[in-house]
Amino acid sequence: MSIEVKDLSYVYSPGTPYAATALDHVDLTVSEGDFVGIIGKTGSGKSTFIQHLNALIRLQSGSIKVYDIDLTEKKPDLKRLRGTVGMVMQYPEYQLFDETVEKDVSYGPKNLGLSEEEIKGRVREAINLVGLDYEDVRDRSPFELSGGQKRRVAIAGVIAMRPRILILDEPTAGLDPRGKKEILALVKRLKETSSPTVIIISHDMDAVAENCDKVALFSGGKIEKVGAPREIFYDDELLLRAEMDVPTVVKIVKEMEKKGVTLGEKPVTRSEFLASVKRWRNG
């Protein structure tokens, strides 16, 4: 078990007129190798939830365990936790600060207290992993790169810490369709090579359906349902209640049903859809 969250609740500014419940008795387990998609409306508690996993928000009530790190302890080993759980925030390119790409990417590993040599190796590896040419960009200022490149550098800064769990908050926000595709392909590649467990928050239902094998639907600070994409995206009553959109594939299947074509299957990805259409045609 890589992450175990039990009965987690959180209230912002408790005891003031601004008090707002962000999380309300949330349970979730994530196993190593999972690709988890977290979906839900804005303000449903998604971001607050993932920030707990990295101890960016202090635990108010409930318990969280990340591998053997117990966050209910008074002083959990934060350094080890942040080396284990890599967090890529929304618009991570706005957090770049150093003079050169190499220096910026080495910020994380340096904070982990690694040796000079180790840092250098990791930085080179991370920059290459995100699809940039190390020799080409290492001495350039991160501020002179293009938007997509900046985001890659920012992700490299997290990857260089070699997290076993990678969390990304809306990694494709504000990108054009091609940039989105590239970043999603990158996340997939990272899952295969460096971080076996990935959690993404996304409003892009197609991306969630295509990539995730487990989906958690947040609504009003609660997890309404956890399950495989097809269990979530074909639960009409749930989606209506949580005011969630569905992947394009599901939309097409529903339209076909209206026209009297019943596939008899519940595809959520494009390839699944094509396969079921073929089967339907043949039989």
Binding site: N54, R82, N111
Partner: peptide, 26 residues
């Protein structure tokens, strides 16, 4: 930004005044 840098292992709370000031650059 502080959260993002904390996620990258930044430490804003310990050390002397100089170290704390330096930690604020990112």
């Amino acid at each position: 930004i502080m959260l993002a840098q904390k996620a990258r292992g930044a430490d804003f709370d310990t050390g002397g005044a100089l170290k704390k000031a330096k930690a604020m650059i990112p």
